[in-house]
Amino acid sequence: MEKDPFAQLIIWHQEDEHEKIVDNIMKIPQSDRDYDTVSLLARAMNNLERYDEALQQLLTIANLYRMNSCFKQPTNSGNDVEKTEKEGIRDEKRKRTRDTSNSNERNQ
């Protein structure tokens, strides 16, 4: 067994020992689980086809994200990949217009 508990969880995942992952992480109080630990738990539950439980674990991460001020929404400056919803819609409309124009040119 690995000295580093997180490394052991990774090894168990590679060995398809998902039940061991779930059993060991569930021993950790929920308030002490970090993002990576909850992610591994959800992945193990998913691999065990415990989909509802996996989803609940992922929702705890989403709730932490909403409540934690350390997680900031990306800004739309510089080379940021994320766009605001409005920009995404505008870009999608441009693409459709461009696709329609190209299709009409090919049909003529």
Rank of each mutant, 00 (worst) to 15 (best):
N24T: 07
S103T: 14
L41H: 08
N76D: 13
L58S: 04
A54F: 06
E85M: 13
N46S: 15
Q57R: 03
Q57W: 06
S31E: 08
D36H: 13
D34Q: 03
E49Q: 12
D99V: 06
S39L: 11
D34W: 03
A44D: 07
N79L: 14
L40M: 12
Y35S: 11
Y35K: 10
L9V: 03
K3N: 01
E105C: 07
N68F: 10
I89R: 09
A54V: 00
N46P: 02
D34V: 10
P5T: 02
S31N: 02
D34A: 09
V38H: 01
L48R: 03
Q8T: 03
I11R: 01
D16L: 04
P5A: 06
S39A: 14
T37R: 08
D52E: 15
L48E: 05
R66C: 12
K83Q: 10
S31R: 00
L48M: 08
E19N: 11
R50T: 03
E92A: 10
S103L: 14
K20Q: 04
A42I: 04
L9C: 05
M67T: 15
S39N: 12
N102S: 09
T60I: 12
D80S: 15
D32V: 05
Y35L: 14
E92C: 01
S101Q: 14
E82D: 11
N107K: 15
I61M: 12
